[in-house]
Nucleic acid binder design. Structure first.
Length: 565
RNA sequence: GCCCCGAUAGUUCAGUGGAUAGAACGAGCGCCUCCUAAGCGCUAGACACAGGUUCGAUUCCUGUUCGGGGCGCCA
């Protein structure tokens, strides 16, 4: 809140024993009570007074005239009615001066972040569940960069799993297959491995050979995985996800860091060879309390490495980059695994990355399964959404040239899907429903874009320069416009909360609130035809500031707002 | 069996110990000679259950029920 510092100072000056953390502003439940509210519970506890008495005392004794028209006690709450003009002037000046940085608190200045997300197995076109990871990760990246962190985005290419081996075998039988056919082939490969142990064994054999350094096999794997990866990235690009580094699992097979960690584990008596010649970590020696997940296999009996073994080397490599934050977005199915890996890394003296989990997107009749071919592909959803949006835009703007209509349609499609996914907390299971994913009405991304388009339309018609905030004190008499001012002022705090929570969900929900507040304003307060010059000037500035908040917020979610729609 | 998430209107979601629990979809009624109706206004509708901690609990703790995830050679 813009006034938080001033407010805290005023109160601390009167109650020197208080701490600034005792003073937390909230918004009163109804506008009649005031613009800002300070619950006195914490302060009352500190000062050993009754909250209601303290509120009354503070309202009488502290001089808030610098920022407020009035201060009144309502039970244990101290409510302030702000001086609208100076508050709005400060807010608008800030928002319009900071432009695309408005809302940033600059928390990450001078700090570096390494984040890994998406990292889909290169075996099929991504389904919407995988898309959830990409959207969550990508938005987090945007949020971190907005807060001035320097961010490197890593993508771990799992290019040597068992299922990749099976895929390679199948691909060699079908001659030349395109990316679109991969899912089908992958499903068949898994079904065949299930039914035919000899086929499955050939997959393992390929793995063993790649691990032994067989360059020819490695080349065959690379051909398939690279084709898949490029196909997947093309889909991910459609929703705006970008990556800086692609790290290949196969580069870590014989990494010396693994031996180093094995040594450390041996020293702690946590590594042993079991009765069937596997190399196993006993995590109970490292502080793991439960029987569940106590054992972690590093190597098969034939000496070949498990996924987790290579991941040890990869994790250390990431740590060695020396970033201040080391983040990773993972599916909830990786929770136990990540805890196990963390124990192993810590035992060898390396900190584990900070993990952010997301839950599955389910279908109405159960969970998705790439192996079973029971998936809703992100690409298909995007295609359908784009086609629908194009119809709508064409209806609305028949005269617009096709190029622009297609651009708008794809922006709307991305907004619909990204917003629907990102506004929900990542720990919740969501049931995918095509109908609501394709809806552009109500609490959706397109609704917010539409709100932006309306503001832009007003700004286009305003043919003068915007008033200068430094010399002009705006006035906002109407409740709808004042509520919009207050809502706009919340933006920087919303961004800060999102960063602390490592989740952009709150930003999405805030943008809906702001868009609703704007639409009420739009219907009640004419801008271009307002009665007085002061009103017109005040409102056009407010429009510009709201647009800046909306577009900045949408940008954090990876959503563009078209000029018109 | 054990461990980790989740449970809020008919439905999809907000709400990180505070005032009268917010939206949207769906349902009903109304609004385009007026800055874009992808919109707005009005009506009806909810904290799974039982205890506990607290001045105060949808929020924290325990138990129950239901849904999701996980639990040694998949990644």
């Amino acid at each position: 809140m813009i006034l938080q510092d001033t407010l805290t100072q005023l109160i601390l000056a009167h109650y020197p024993e208080a701490e600034s953390s005792d003073i937390q502003c909230t918004v009163p439940p109804t506008p009649e009570l005031g613009d800002l509210s300070i619950p006195m519970f914490l302060l009352a506890k500190r000062l050993r007074k009754a909250p209601a008495l303290l509120a009354g005392e503070a309202a009488r004794e502290i001089d808030f005239s610098q920022i407020a028209e009035s201060a009144t006690a309502a039970g244990p709450y101290l409510n302030l009615t702000l001086k609208r003009g100076s508050f709005a002037q400060q807010l608008l000046a800030q928002a319009l001066a900071k432009e695309e940085k408005w809302g940033s608190n600059g928390i990450g200045k001078g700090l570096q972040v390494l984040i890994e997300h998406t990292s889909i197995n290169p075996n099929a076109s991504p389904h919407v569940g995988r898309g959830r990871c990409a959207m969550i990760g990508d938005s987090l990246v945007r949020l971190l960069r907005f807060e001035d962190y320097e961010v490197d985005v890593h993508y771990y290419v799992n290019d040597m799993g068992r299922q990749i081996g099976l895929l390679v075998l199948m691909m060699e039988e079908v001659e030349k297959a395109s990316f679109d056919e991969i899912l089908d082939i992958y499903v068949k490969a898994n079904a065949r491995a299930e039914a035919d142990p000899e086929f499955a064994a050939r997959g393992y054999e390929l793995l063993a050979r790649i691990e032994a350094g067989d360059e020819e096999v490695r080349r065959r794997f690379f051909e398939v995985t690279e084709m898949c990866l490029q196909g997947q990235l093309a889909v991910l690009r459609r929703i705006g996800a970008r990556y800086d580094f692609f790290d290949h699992e196969s580069d870590y097979v014989n990494d010396p860091r693994i031996a180093e960690v094995e040594k450390a584990l041996e020293n702690k008596g946590a590594l042993f060879t079991d009765e069937e010649e596997r190399r196993v970590v006993d995590l109970s020696k490292l502080g793991h309390a439960l029987e569940e997940g106590r054992y972690f296999v590093l190597r098969r009996a034939n000496g070949s490495s498990m996924y987790g073994c290579r991941d040890i080397a990869y994790s250390i490599m990431k740590h060695e980059k020396g970033a201040d934050l080391n983040l990773m977005v993972l599916g909830e199915d990786h929770k136990l695994y990540a805890q196990q890996l963390a124990l192993i890394l810590e035992a060898a003296g390396y900190p584990a990355p900070e993990t952010i989990y997301y839950s599955y997107i389910l279908l109405k009749d159960g969970k998705m399964s790439t192996r079973g071919g029971k998936v809703v592909l992100l690409d298909d959803v995007l295609n359908q959404a784009t086609a629908l949006a194009l119809e709508r835009v064409t209806e609305q703007f028949p005269g617009l040239d096709e190029r622009e209509r297609v651009d708008i349609a794809s922006q709307v499609a991305v907004a619909a899907i990204r917003f629907a996914v990102l506004r929900v907390k990542s720990t919740k299971n969501v049931v995918f429903d095509m109908q609501s994913a394709l809806s552009f009405q109500g609490d959706t991304g397109p609704y917010i874009q539409y709100c932006c388009a309306r503001i832009r339309s007003i700004l286009r018609k305003w043919d003068a320069a915007l008033p200068d905030c430094d010399s002009f004190v705006p006035e906002f008499q109407e409740e709808a416009e004042w509520r919009l001012v207050l809502k706009t002022a919340e933006f920087p705090d919303v961004v800060k909360d999102a960063l602390n929570q490592r989740s952009c969900a709150g930003i999405g929900n805030y943008l809906l609130d702001l868009a609703h507040a704007f639409t009420s304003f739009y219907h009640e307060c004419p801008v271009l035809t307002a009665q007085s010059t002061e009103q017109r000037m005040s409102r056009i500035l407010l429009c510009a500031a709201v647009l800046q908040s909306l577009t900045n917020g949408l940008a954090l979610l990876g959503i563009d707002a078209p000029e018109r729609m």
